[in-house]
Design a protein around this nucleic acid. Structure first.
Length: 1028
RNA sequence: GGUCGAUUAGCUCAGUGGUAGAGCACUGCAUUGACAUUGCAGGGGUCACAAGUUCGAACCUUGUAUCGACCACCA
């Protein structure tokens, strides 16, 4: 006999270990079985399980367990992502916390990377064990890490192939620069947030004190302002970038500035005697209605300006260093400004490299932090009187002597932040590696259009197209140390060797050297072609000094590493052994379904599509992409640390005391002042913390709430409810054991005698069929509710109750059949529930019979409609109906719960009479009846109701009040009357009868007849009562 | 500005043209035998609003309102 209750803590980890040891998670590699692969979205090695992971992996596990039971050859590919920035950040923080002076740079690259690996071995990957706690049936023996050696081979091959095709290239471009991590990041890693900003209006004086007539008109062409100006007015949110301006642009149609287009104006910052003059140009970009209509063009510090500058051949001057400080290198401003001036006037050649190296920061701003520099620039301009002035609104009343103040508009501006660092991103002109995403995107778009890959729910394809069709070059180089190093080696002469290994680079370099002639100079001198050796150096400096030996051609590797998503993008095939043609690759590519949240469609899904199609002969990496919801708290708020509403999945599984929960939520807050608030709210909402609900309850909750296309608001009450559901199943099994149900035996449904047993088998068939269909269609909520409803409402509330009479009765044959069916139906229920609740069902399987196998290895119920016996279903349907009806009436007329009531049936037909005979005992027990007989007429003063053709008569005249009974019947008649009128009206409508489908019309007619029959019987009963 | 989504019972949500549903909460009754993590019975909804299509609309169309998400943005 099983325990009184299921204790998740006593079983879950034990069961999981047994599965893993027995190799249950391994693919069968049965060649006759259909392969089924799911690639886990590799969690960050730094990560720990949150609710999103719990949902994501529950869904994957349901699919995998279901398909495994259906006999497929399943591989759920697990692994982790090395998560470049995130991981490097964690270790750098650790170094800082450890005190001492050690940081990344003082350690040096090799030592630091070694340190990160050590960290990874010690503390990385806790999330994989948390996935085990959830029950995830991953193929752990094939666990991969995106930075492992085999992954690196794939990465290098992909890089080299794309490079050779020209789809990867190096270029100097404006990229998003994270000044905190001092690396480029992709535009996806930038989060645009609205912040309070200012817009300053400044005057750029015209060169040589020139003047023009500035005219403003309203819509009708009436002149509203006309004045002589010796400047052009500029509005900017970033005054510190003025020093890098290359031009001022106005719209070609803007008449206000037409007189001065082509002239020069002065940037009003820096030492007066060395100020630069820049041209006033036209471009389509400026919006005449915004600001002053004139835009300063700072190509090296703004993405829009960059485009204008490229179009107009405007020089781009970089003002900041990699930390976001004003540059402190290079020659004096006076010299540089002069050079810049000559370039602007066309007297000196425009050379990108030369310009990029030019430092146009005046001495007083050099080395200043960017926001400090902004303040300083503003102050200096204001002090000099080049701010556009406006009457002080505070003194509006006395307009005559209103003091003038600089015009500064307060406005909301969108500012870019690094999603990891949280600092303001700086557009930076740097050399980076790019993937020609546009070319790769085309077949990836086509694959979704053609249906080779489908999004579920399908409306996500719009999001996918939208992004893919407007895709920009993907910046893949990162100035980090933790990651796949870019497989490119340079000679000091700038020659580039892109090869899969360093050895190959050496060979290529050797071939290159052999093509040189003896006059070629490299590194400042000729090299000895005869005995020249190729030398690999750590960096450029080392290479350069090595070149002093004439018998050496020195190489150094590119310093940068690749964007993490570059290696994740290969996940569907790199994990299966590519570029080797392994069995795994042949079997498990393409995968079946990718399960993920929408927020990584761009980061990951799109990249896997592009790279998968490219490198796997045009074959997509997965057939379906199931996009699931975001998990929020019970009120629909995003779970966040600062809100204090984060629910840790493991806490729901293991339970947690209130104090521990509060401590968890209040420590390490970014805003510690919120702690008391969080504590109060948590204490109020969860005064006892969480009980240990177990993994099954959590999984079932997530599945039940996983509807297509909607967020999940997770409530702990709901988890408790599904824990109760597990208890219900547990106790049903306990009941079965007490009644000696037969487990571990098979039954032949076609040979069953009792309609009760035929019926439950049919109900089971309907249940498992709808579960299968729902899972196939990714309707996890429907699947969960089908099996929930069957287990609780059908099996426990009806079948178990109805079977008691037989199990306690004298009919040995009936008893034996029922024991067999009871055990079998429960076992099948375990199977059907197993994908959702793997632990409790496996324990029940284990403890109900001597088993040598696991539930998770059983076959999915292969039931067919032969199991669905309509006669039995009708018969039991009637039994259920009559019991419910009698119970309801009893309750309505307040018959004491314990009282036994005599009941007779009037006007029953032969079929009903047969049912009465067959099920009399059970009906009497469940409806608490003293007798249950067919009768010709009802005794006076009885309580009546109607089931189908028969009138159910409760002979309890003495217990009731005639007036109340009349009132009860009137209420029912009123309800019926309303429905009947509605139906009559509809059926009286000629258009309805003519146009609606015949079956609908017939259905409504039948229903009307039924209702009328019921009404007639009830009104007769009412009249009889009234006549007394 | 573009795109997508939401609005149904007190709460959280299902429901793809034909009798409005679930869980929780609520009300009444029930306590020796699977289960109080329970059972039985019940109350509760103008399906945001308006117009349209249709024999028939929570569902389809259009519009309005409110809320949300994502993307892109004006110096």
């Amino acid at each position: 006999m099983i325990d009184q209750r299921f204790d998740p803590k006593a079983h879950e980890q034990r069961i999981y270990q047994r599965w893993e040891e027995a190799g249950c998670f391994r693919p069968s590699m049965d060649t006759s079985a259909e392969p089924y692969a799911i690639m886990i979205p590799p969690p960050n090695v730094t990560g720990s399980l949150h609710m999103g992971h719990a949902l994501n992996n529950t869904v994957q596990d349901i699919l995998c367990r279901f398909e495994r039971m259906r006999g497929k050859n399943v591989r759920w590919q697990p692994g982790m992502d090395h998560a470049g920035i995130a991981t490097q950040m964690v270790v750098e923080r650790q170094l800082a916390a450890a005190g001492g002076n050690q940081d990344r740079r003082s350690m040096g690259r090799d030592a630091f990377v070694k340190r990160v690996w050590e960290w990874k071995e010690e503390s990385g990957g806790t999330i994989l064990n948390q996935l085990r706690r959830l029950g995830a049936s991953c193929d752990w023996e094939n666990t991969k890490f995106t930075l492992d050696e085999d992954m690196n081979k794939a990465v290098n091959k992909v890089f080299v192939d794309l490079y050779n095709e020209g789809l990867i290239y190096r270029a100097k471009r404006l990229v998003n620069w994270d000044p905190h991590f001092q690396t480029a990041i992709s535009n996806l890693e930038v989060e645009n947030k609205e912040v309070d900003g200012h817009m300053w209006h400044f005057k750029y004086p015209l060169a040589g004190g020139e003047t023009y007539t500035y005219v403003e008109k309203d819509e009708d062409g009436t002149i509203t302002l006309e004045e002589t100006r010796d400047y052009i007015s500029i509005a900017t949110t970033r005054p510190e970038t003025m020093l890098g301006d290359g031009a001022v642009a106005v719209h070609p149609s803007d008449e206000r500035y037409a007189p001065i287009v082509g002239k020069l104006c002065e940037i009003p910052v820096g030492p007066k005697e060395h100020r630069r003059l820049i041209p006033i140009i036209t471009d389509e970009y400026p919006d005449p209605d915004f600001g002053s209509g004139a835009v300063k063009i700072t190509g090296a510090h703004d993405f829009n300006d960059y485009q204008v500058a490229k179009r107009g051949g405007i020089p781009m001057y970089a003002l900041m260093d990699e930390k976001g400080f004003m540059r402190a290198d290079g020659e004096a401003y006076a010299v540089m400004a002069e050079v810049a001036q000559r370039i602007a006037e066309g007297k000196e050649d425009f050379d990108e490299a030369k310009i990029a190296a030019m430092n146009l920061v005046p001495d007083q701003y050099r080395g200043m932090e960017r926001f400090e520099a902004r303040k300083a620039v503003i102050e200096d301009i204001n002090a000099e009187g080049n701010a556009v002035m406006i009457a002080d609104p505070k003194h509006k009343d006395e307009e005559t002597d209103a003091p003038f103040i600089p015009l500064v508009e307060n406005k909301k501006i969108m500012q870019p932040f690094g999603d990891r660092s949280g600092v303001v991103i700086e557009p930076m002109l740097t050399d980076q590696w790019f993937v020609d995403a546009e070319t790769l995107a085309k077949p990836a778009i086509e694959a979704v259009r053609s249906g080779a890959t489908k999004f579920v729910p399908e409306n996500w394809d719009r999001t996918y197209y939208n992004w893919m069709e407007n895709i920009e070059p993907w910046c893949i180089s990162r100035q980090l140390w933790w990651g796949h190093r870019i497989p490119v080696w340079y000679g000091v002469d700038g020659k580039t060797f892109c090869t899969e290994t360093a050895d190959a680079a050496v060979i290529e370099a050797g071939e290159y050297v052999s093509t040189l002639n003896e006059h070629t100079e490299i590194g400042g001198h000729k090299i000895d072609l005869q005995g020249c050796a190729i030398l690999l150096c750590d960096d450029r400096e080392a290479a350069q000094s090595a070149m002093s030996d004439q018998r050496t051609y020195a190489l150094y590797q590119d310093e940068d590493v690749l964007d993490t998503w570059f290696s994740s993008g290969l996940w569907p095939f790199s994990t299966q052994g590519w570029p080797e043609q392994t069995d795994g690759l042949k079997t498990f590519y393409p995968g079946a379904t990718l399960v993920t949240a929408f927020d990584i469609i761009f980061f990951w899904v799109a990249r896997m599509m592009m790279l998968g199609i490219k490198f796997m002969d045009g074959e997509v990496p997965f057939k379906d992409v199931y996009i699931h919801a975001i998990v929020r708290d019970e009120n629909g708020k995003k779970m966040s640390k600062s809100e204090g509403n984060v629910i840790d999945p493991v806490d729901l599984i293991d339970g947690i005391e209130a104090d521990a929960l509060i401590a968890k939520r209040t420590t390490g807050l970014r805003q510690p002042e919120k702690a008391p608030q969080v504590e109060k709210a948590t204490r109020k909402r969860y005064p006892k913390g969480f009980e240990a609900y177990g993994a099954d309850a959590l999984r079932f909750t997530l599945a039940a709430m996983a509807t297509k296309g909607r967020d999940i608001n997770l409530s702990v009450e709901r988890v408790a409810g599904y824990r109760n559901f597990g208890t219900k199943l547990w106790n049903a099994t306990r009941f079965a054991q007490m009644n000696e149900a037969k487990f571990g035996a098979s039954i032949s449904p076609q040979h069953l005698e009792l309609s009760l047993n035929k019926w439950i088998v049919g109900e089971l068939y309907k249940c498992t069929t709808s579960v299968s269909e729902a899972i196939e269609d990714y309707r996890f909520n429907d699947a969960a509710s089908a099996v929930y409803h069957f287990t609780w409402d059908v099996l426990c509330d009806w079948y178990l109750e109805l079977s008691k009479s037989i199990l306690n009765g004298d009919d040995a044959e009936a008893k034996s059949e029922t024991q067999a069916v009871l055990g079998w139906v429960l076992e099948q229920t375990f199977v059907a529930l197993h994908p959702f609740m793997p632990f409790i069902t496996e324990v029940l399987w284990e403890q109900t019979a001597d088993r040598s196998d696991f539930l998770m290895q059983q076959s999915w119920p292969g039931l067919n409609d032969a199991f669905d016996d309509q006669t039995a279903a009708d018969e039991l349907g009637w039994v259920l109906k009559i019991i419910s009806q009698i119970r309801s009436v009893r309750s309505d007329v307040n018959v004491p719960a314990g009282a036994k009531v005599p009941v007779s049936l009037v006007d029953a037909n032969a079929e009903t009479a047969r049912c009465v005979a067959a099920h009399r005992d059970v009906i009497m027990r469940m409806a608490r009846l003293e007798k249950f007989e067919i009768a010709d007429a009802a005794p006076a003063g009885s309580v009546k109701s109607v089931v189908d053709e028969a009138t159910v008569v409760l002979e309890i005249a003495d217990l009731i009040d005639a007036g109340e009974e009349i009132a009860r019947l009137d209420k029912q008649l009123g309800k019926l009357g309303g429905e009947i009128t509605g139906l009559e009206k509809r059926l009286g409508n000629e258009a309805f009868v003519a146009k609606a489908p015949a079956e609908v019309v017939a259905e409504q007619k039948t229903r009307l007849a039924e209702l009328q029959g019921t009404r007639d019987k009830l009104s007769v009963a009412r009249d009889q009562l009234a006549a007394l």
